[in-house]
Design a protein around this nucleic acid. Sequence first.
DNA 1: TTCGGTAGCGCC
DNA 2: AAAGGGCGCTACCGAA
Length: 690
Amino acid sequence: MISLDTETTGVDHYHGTKPFFVTTCDENGEQRYWEWNVDPYTRDVEVDPSDLDAIRLLLSTDPTVVLHNTKFDVKALESIGVDNFNWNRYYDTLLAAHILASNQQKDLTALAVQYLNIDIQPFEDVLEKAVKECRTWARNNKPSWRIANKEDEDMPSAKEKTWKFDTWLPRLLAQEREYKEPVEGCDHDWGMNWYCQRCNGHRWWVVLSDYANTDSAVTLPLWQTMEEEIKLRGQWKNYLERLKVLRPLHLMEKNGLTVNLKWLDEKIQEFSEGSVTCEHICTNIAAGYEYELQLPKGGRNKSLDTFLTDVMKLKPMGYTKTGNTSYNKEAMEGYMATLPENSLEYTFVSELLDKRSQDTAISYMNSYKKFGIRIPDTDYIVLHPNINPTGTDTTRCASNNPNGQNISKKEKRNIRSTFGPLPDREWWTIDAENLELRIPAYEANEEEMIFLFENPNQPPYFGSYHMLIFDTLHPDKFKKHGIKCKSVYESTWYQWTKNGNFAVQYGAQEVSGTADRAYHVPGAQHRIQSRFTRIQELSQRQIKFAENYGYVETIPDKSVDPERGYPLLCTRSKWGNIKSTVPLSYHIQGTACLWMQGAEIRCQAALDDWNNRERKSNPRYRMFIQVHDELGFDFPRRAHPLKDPKNSNLDKIREIKKLMEIGGEYIGVRTTVSIKYHTESWAKGETIKC
DNA sequence: TTCGGTAGCGCC
DNA sequence: AAAGGGCGCTACCGAA
């Protein structure tokens, strides 16, 4: 068993980030490490091929490898041609940290303190100090060096703490300035000015290697402690299952998703013009009040605040969590509902709302351009959003650089329309249907709801949960129009019913009236809860459990561990008690995302099988994104699934559908998926029943 | 100049 | 004492 860690020139593996330091440590504490120079003008790493052979050889002896954030190091190694990492023999301390304490800090420094009582922070502090000093020196003395910078197009992820991208700098500067190299074996006594009092060596030579080697040395004992603890808590099977999802996610990230650059530019242009028009209308209205308005690029600034509060004298519609008057979307919609439609105030508010939504969309699209990699000879760029399975308090994945999970599908500001398969490819997107509603319904045995989910073709609700609730709240309307209420009240009562349902799903408390306001029906939540009492009881059980133990567990998965679910620590209020809104929400959300995790693992195995059979150098059947309950597949383009099923990918999609839906059987919930087929864009999908 | 908090808005 | 869960990104603003 060895631990392995890499230090890199950044985090953007697809923009030239490379490892310049690889360190390993075995169970006897023997360390091996490889360090390469970074060209300061290009940031290219001058890798020694014989070192690569040594690393490959080490991996080929099939050790069990322990890493902290496996996907990152595997991508770093792959970028320099080391691609024999064995996904069947590794452990990850980041995943371990999540299963042991889902909502606590998970960085190596925090874990070393917590599990080993070792403080490695001083190594990071001294590294930070050295790097920052070196950056300042380099900026002043080597203007053509490529110091990490937010504006550098090969570092789209550089935001704050940019110094972390330049940890290669101290050693280089030590050489550049001809500082004396510390004598190996000397028991260094570092003085205040970086010099060793004993051997006269300069600390910049070793500040990075000391830091990195400490990390790899700590990782093994950390893992051993964590492994024991995971087993002690009866979570070993759940942990092993969790390990399996990293490879599918890794491949998903590598595949990435394609955006049509022309469509993207058109959309940016359209929204930019739209935003300017809104801005003009707003500033003109303000001018009528003799107020020189400076609209913010983001949500709000002082100029806007003053205008809304003091000049137009709008009464507060709601408050931010710190108690300031809120001018968010909800407040704006509140003004629009109460002000006369032909008033200046109404126009101002609606134009401001319009401007904001377009500005948000523009900022997202600009980030796609920043992160996108051009695909030669096409109009497409490809994005590689990072997917972080330990980024949330539950088992949900987070996504960043760029975030692939908040791409607008609103009708008016649809951005998914700029995403789509390459001309020789086709996309399939598969959604779990009402997954987070089904889980509590089946678990609590809420019979009326289960009947609905089991009989999607039967009257009166035809499988629609929203319609069931609609009838509960508006029986007269439902009696009159039946299922047609959906279209008759599309943007009013039906939409409000959906809004209220989501509020309840995410834990809105009855006493707050939040859900009632969303439903536009006083007392709505109470009426619903008295019709569906069992889910309410389930919630109480989860709260009780969380109050006793501090966490909730997901529903045990029979294919993983029939005894134990995955533990999720619950958020506490500032007074230290469990927030009552959390336990059921985490229990359901956590279960839903493990359902998806299982689906990803099973689907990737099927894709591997198909790809191996084809024996092409590039895997042709791939997953490209997951958005919590939606999974995207990128397949070679074949015939249309309805027009020419035999020559289409329909058989493979049927298999995928089966592999996804079977996950419900393991948790006692009937789960179904809906399937869309895309040849042009992510926004345009044909529903395929199969 | 850097950094963190606040706010707003996109997704499920 | 309060009562809507989970995220990431951008802009703004004030303090370090």
